[in-house]
């Protein structure tokens, strides 16, 4: 699936990960005049190149945190920094892959992947990067297809290629595998790990699947119910590729599910 030659081509520019500092960030939504707190004094410090999974009950505010990291929204209080510089607006060094692929239906697969380079005005000289990114996710044969012709897994791969073509320093994944069938999901988890290992970007993954978090990440942060607070920060010191049946991971999974209030059933 992953072509080594394509990898070498994409990885050419400096693509190492950036450090991310989330300092005492609190955030709230205004809903019909009432203030609904979603993040409560969250502080996380992510090392360059780390793979951090954010785990928490559904609706706890994980995705909101990702939007703040991406620069799409501003926090009510606290600061976010990428390599010492404060995050104030979106920047292509921090790219988000959303739960829905949100491909632009009026653009072909190739044009969708080219979106970032085109928006930054560097597409003309960098067309090879689009081709390489498509090779990377194994969809070179579909470059002229339109999104409505793709399956869910293929569409999510295109969305991944569209993010990776920008050589992000921080890759932000908002439950990108949540809507895929379990087989495609396992395949794409393996692909994600190998991409991350080869390219070295910092990865932030929001998920509500403890197993997925443990198979992919080398650090799992567990959030409380809304407003989200950091409940636990767990290091996963296991080599890749990891096995789902690993007793060490199974033990961690029991711990995490306990933190999420599910210990009785497991």
């Amino acid at each position: 699936m992953v072509a080594a030659a394509a990898l070498a081509e994409v990885a050419a520019p400096a693509a190492a990960g950036a450090a991310l500092d989330i300092e005492q960030v609190s955030h709230a939504f205004d809903i019909d005049g009432a203030e609904l707190p979603v993040l409560d004094d969250v502080s996380i410090s992510v090392e360059p190149g780390e793979f951090v999974a954010l785990l928490g009950p559904s609706g706890c505010g994980k995705s909101t945190l990702l939007r703040l990291v991406a620069g799409l929204d501003k926090p009510k209080s606290g600061t976010l920094r990428e390599d010492e510089s404060r995050i104030r607006a979106p920047h292509p060094s921090r790219v988000v892959v959303f739960q829905d692929p949100t491909l632009f239906p009026w653009r072909s697969v190739w044009d969708n992947v080219a979106l970032g380079l085109e928006a930054q005005g560097i597409l003309k000289s960098q067309r090879h990067r689009v081709d390489a990114a498509l090779d990377l996710v194994g969809l070179s044969d579909f470059r002229t297809a339109y999104p409505h012709q793709l399956s869910g897994g293929m569409a999510q791969r295109v969305a991944l290629a569209r993010a990776l073509v920008n050589d992000p320093k921080i890759l932000i994944l908002d439950e990108p595998l949540g809507k895929l069938d379990s087989l495609t999901r396992i395949t794409m988890q393996a692909e994600l790990v190998s991409l991350w290992q080869r390219k070295g970007f910092t990865t932030l993954l929001v998920t509500h699947d403890a197993e997925e978090a443990l198979v992919l990440a080398n650090r799992v942060i567990v959030f409380s119910d809304r407003p989200a607070r950091v409940k636990a920060d767990i290091r996963v010191d296991r080599p890749y590729p990891r096995h789902r049946g690993d007793p060490y991971l199974a033990d961690l999974r029991r711990q995490i599910l306990g933190l999420l209030g599910l210990d009785a059933t497991w």
């Binding site: 979106p90 920047h91 959303f98 632009f104 970032g116 920008n166």
Partner: peptide, 16 residues
């Protein structure tokens, strides 16, 4: 809005 979010994170300016 999701389309705008995607474009903005990829570095799109308002004219884009």
């Amino acid at each position: 809005n999701a389309y705008y979010d995607v474009a903005r994170t990829l570095g799109a300016k308002p004219s884009f």
